[in-house]
Structures are given as structure tokens and as C-alpha cells.
Nucleic acid binder design. Structure first.
Lengths: 321, 321
DNA sequence: TTGTACGCGTTATCAG
DNA sequence: CTGATAACGCGTACAA
């Protein structure tokens, strides 16, 4: 009986309702989600698997997910893969054991057999930041190619022709797409990318630091650098600072991402802003609608690609070459 | 019976073991952690309640907690309070419903009756960043007073006498302690704090932005500002930049915290570094030992106070006054 | 060594 | 509308 009023189902009289509620308050009743889950097979908990919560892009995404999840009565377990496929699988196993109702994941490179098994097993899945071939799940992404192209086109319009790029991890969609954007922008001006100006940064601060140093040692230095994410931007800027290179007088800089510090850095840095918080919100919305199978009237698109925006600041300068 | 061999406890014969295992494979048996948790009262999940994961201090703490938790087979549910007592209680309820095995919390200001009830209820608890009177639980903190004092003493030793402070939230331990450190450092030079130089920043970017603007409008400007955390530092630096104030030529700046961008900002900024990752590691260690009740031989201290360190960079300049 | 029956806290069903 | 009772899947105590 008490179960009915507390669970708010079935039928009961106003009188018993009040009695039960009074008693519940008296005992400080709090429902046990575990027992509930045993019955309903819903834990009201979702898993989130990203590369590293320490990156401010991901921090913001996670905050978006958490906020929306809290609204819907869901809790979130966040795991970090550090771009390592083994770590990914380990986290996935922990998540599955906890019987999460759904999963939001940014897949690493590598074999995703376990992930695919989970997906086939019926666990609702949402991909974030990257797609994954062979898995039928909605994805929330950003148009990396167009964003990168906009960044490089901006440099070109300022007169730059020797534009270097510090890429992420080859094979990772976001990295490859940003490189394609770079290529496309150059192609429009009939410029072919010079291998010596194309550097690997592995989404790592140290690698980007090294890459920047190498670029500065070139006989003919680039007049501008496009850095493919915020983490690498920090390494790059450190190297520039160390070498005494003035931005933008000696060299122009544009980055993919728009971290908080971009605004008050000296000079403030121009970048491509991603709607990270919104991505988190959307990701959970998609997950939730899958979980509750309450398909909204209009069938929603399976691949949500959001727009980035160019935030103009003071790290790029007009040149004549 | 089958439970015994699969759970690997009690006694059984080799023969039955093989029969059961064969059957298990045939049915693709996989244990149900939910049912298990209902019985054992161990969910292998811990809750973490902080103010805002978006702050890089907290991001790092959380990463420390996650890493150590993963090692011990634990998953973490992170909730944000945004320094709001109601939000704190709401998150706490969600956590309790999920029957977490333990809780790491940075308590907000306000009535913690629910938290105390949880603690008395026997849920292992660890306080992080702040203590909480009336709750018997270990706390992992930093010596905020000494750290702040070191920062201000540094400014004093450089010749500064008009030193402004942008505080956090009055009543919050970290904020109050940092202010005490400020007072103490001044007292050693027989300087009494001037109310006009003491500003409220509420740990908020915007509030700190405003506070900085007010300081700059003073008839006699301060020669240095001590900003009590990283979030507020960003607001302060934006205001300085907007007003065209050069650091450190026109004004010296020192902050509590040592965010990643401090190194490559121009100028790089001097600050008080907290061992945030270590704090996360320690917090989970304490929690885990409480959960497993495996009291280590030596009784560990209840209040762990870590040291901060002054990281010298280029935002403070020597002056003569 | 083996079988079995009970309880964990919910939800859901079925008579009353 | 109400009260009792059977699952959910696993651990465990007790009896065989």
C-alpha cells in the first residue's frame, strides 16, 4: 500500500496518502534506487566516457550533461580514456557492471568490439565529438572541417601564405577533419600544403611545444600557425614565449577552441569556439529520449552537427607578402 | 548451489563446479551487480560533491579522485552545488538514493542537517577543501592562511604597502582563512588593512571584474592586488586589460591558485599553487579505508593540511615607496 | 559436500 | 480503494 502512494501509482485515498506521507517524513524515508533498479531494470544512472576531463572543452561538455541529467533525475559516472583503447574497455566494463541505463561516449582510436557488443545488447548510446562507423547511434558533433577552414581562411585573408598547422592525432576524426579544413582553405587560394609546415601535436601540450620549436627553427619561418586544440595551444604559446617571438608582430596565431584564458591573454587570442556546453545538453537529451523510448513526434536527426564560430581577437595581424 | 561456484565461496566439488560452469557458459550468464548490491550493501560507487567542476582546481581534484577510485574498482558520481545549500541537499539526496558507499564533499555555507544525518547514518565521509564543525570525518585541506600570508609577504618584501585583496565569499573557510593570511602579513609590518582595499569577489568572475574596476577608480590606486582564487583572477585580469593597466609596471598581481595559463600569460602570473591532484588522491584513499574498515596500523590524522607553494613568475615588481 | 529457503527494498498483481 | 503476496537475482545460514 505505502508503495503506491510513495511510488505514486495505482489508486489510493487522500486519507491514506496523507497518513503514509506523514509516516514517511517521520522515518525520513528515502527510496532505495538499488532495489528499485532490481525490479525496473533502470538505475537512473548514465555513463560518460571521454578522453580527459581535465581539458576545458570536456569539462564544459560534462557540466552540460550533468546539468541536464540532474533535471531528469539522472546521475552521471564520468570515466577518462586518455585516448587509450584499453583504458576505454576497462571503463566500459565498470560501467556495464553498474548497469547504467545509457552511455555517452567519445570513442578512442582502436578496436571497439566491446562497445559494439554493448550497443547491440540494447544499451542506449550517444556518440559525442566523434562518430563511429559500424555503430547505430546518434552523434553530437561540431563541423570541424568548416571551423578549421574558417580559421585558415581568416589568416589567408590577412595576407598570410606560409601557414603552419599543428595537428592532433592522425586517424582521429576531429584531427583529420580540421586538417581537411586547412587543406581546403589553402586549395581555394591554389596553395598546396607544405609538409614542413604540417606538424603532429598528438593533442598533447609537450608535443605541441616541440612542434612549435621545430617550426621556429625553419630557415623560412611560417608567418602564422593554426593550432588544432586548446591543450596544444598552451604548449605552442609557451614555446613562442620562450623563443621571444612576439604575437602577432612576428607571427600570427589562431587556435581551434576558445578557452577562458583566450580573452585576457596578451595578446588575446583569436580562435574557433565550440558550443561545448550545448553539446553536453544535447547529448543527454538524445540519450534520455532513447532511454525513455518516448520518441518525440518528429524523428530527430541521427547526426547532429553544430556550427563553430570564429572569435576575433588580437593574435592575428595583417601582412603583405 | 550454483551461486557458490560462481561466487567462488563456500564449498563444492570439482564435478559440480564444472557442470555449473558449463551451464553458465551455455546461458551466457553474467552476474547482476544490482542484486548483489542490494544484498551486500556495497555499490562500489562513491559520490563527490563540489562547488563547480568547471573550476580548474576542482577539475584536477576530481581527476585525482577518479584515478585512485578506478584503481580500487570504484566509480564516481560527481555533483555540483554551485555554492548553493539547496542544490547541495538535492544532490545529496540523489546520491543517498543511489546507495553510494561513501561521499567526498566540499560543504557549502548553510544548514547541513541532512549531511549530518547521512554521516550519523554511517555513510563514510571525507571533507575536502573545507572542514565542517559538528561532523566527525577526516578532512583534506590546504593551509590557506599560510599560503595567503606567503603571497602578501612576497608583495611586502618587494616594497608594496598599498595592497588590495579581492576576497571570496565571507563565511566560507577558504575565503576567511586567506583573508586572515592577508591580515597577518600586513600586521607583521604594522600595517592595518584599509577597508577600501578589501573587496568582495564572491568567487565569481564578474564580481571580481567589478571589484577590480572599483579599485582602479580609487583616488590612490593600490600598487598591488592579491586575488583569492583563479576564477576571480580571470575577471580581475580582464578588467586590468580593459583599463590599459600594465602588469607589473603599473600594478603588481599575485593570485591564490596556479592555473595552467599562468605560465604563458603575458606577463606570466605569480601565484600560490595548491596540490589539487594529490588532494583528490588522498581524499579517495581516506574514503576507501573507511569503507573497507581496514584501519591501517597507524591511526591516520583526521585533519590533513597540505602545504601550498609560491610559484614565482613575472607579475610582481619591486617598487620603492 | 549439497540442497534449500529466506531476505534485501521495490514494484506489480490479484483478491477482497 | 485496500491489503496481502509474488517476483527481481544474489548471498547466506541452516539443515540434510
Amino acid at each position: 500500500m505505502a508503495g503506491r502512494v510513495l511510488g505514486n501509482y495505482g489508486s489510493f485515498s487522500k486519507a491514506t496518502q496523507q497518513k503514509v506521507q506523514a509516516a514517511a517524513r517521520a522515518v525520513h524515508y528515502s527510496p532505495n534506487t538499488i532495489a528499485k533498479a532490481l525490479k525496473t531494470r533502470l538505475t537512473k544512472t548514465a555513463g560518460v566516457l571521454i578522453s580527459d576531463i581535465t581539458a576545458s572543452f570536456w569539462t564544459t561538455v560534462v557540466r552540460g550533461i550533468q546539468d541536464r541529467a540532474a533535471r531528469d533525475g539522472y546521475s552521471i559516472i564520468v570515466c577518462n580514456s586518455d585516448e587509450d583503447a584499453n583504458a576505454e574497455t576497462a571503463s566500459l566494463m565498470a560501467l556495464v557492471e553498474r548497469a547504467i541505463d545509457g552511455l555517452i561516449i567519445c570513442p578512442t582510436l582502436g578496436n571497439h568490439s566491446f562497445l559494439k557488443k554493448i550497443s547491440r545488447g540494447g544499451t542506449p548510446l550517444v556518440l559525442i565529438d566523434r562518430k563511429l562507423a559500424g555503430v547505430k547511434a546518434p552523434s553530437i558533433r561540431v563541423d570541424n572541417r568548416v571551423g578549421a577552414k574558417e580559421a585558415v581562411s581568416h589568416l589567408l585573408s590577412l595576407g598570410h601564405r606560409r601557414i603552419a598547422i599543428i595537428k592532433g592525432i592522425d586517424g582521429v576524426e576531429t584531427s583529420d577533419e580540421r586538417y581537411h579544413g586547412y587543406e581546403e582553405a589553402l586549395a581555394e587560394r591554389r596553395i598546396t600544403p607544405q609538409p614542413v609546415l604540417v606538424r603532429e601535436g598528438h593533442f598533447s601540450r609537450n608535443r605541441a611545444f616541440e612542434a612549435t620549436r621545430e617550426l621556429l627553427q625553419l630557415r623560412v619561418r611560417p608567418s602564422a600557425i593554426f593550432v588544432c586544440n586548446e591543450i596544444m595551444a598552451s604548449g605552442c604559446m609557451l614555446a613562442l614565449k620562450e623563443a621571444g617571438v612576439r604575437v602577432p608582430q612576428d607571427l600570427s596565431l589562431i587556435i581551434f577552441d576558445d578557452p577562458v584564458w583566450a580573452a585576457w591573454a596578451s595578446p588575446s587570442v583569436t580562435g574557433i569556439s565550440q558550443p561545448s556546453y550545448t553539446m553536453g545538453i544535447l547529448a543527454f537529451d538524445y540519450l534520455f529520449s532513447q532511454i525513455s523510448k518516448a520518441r518525440t513526434s518528429a524523428p530527430r536527426a541521427d547526426d547532429v552537427v553544430l556550427k563553430t564560430s570564429l572569435v576575433l581577437r588580437n593574435s592575428c595581424r595583417k601582412i603583405r607578402e
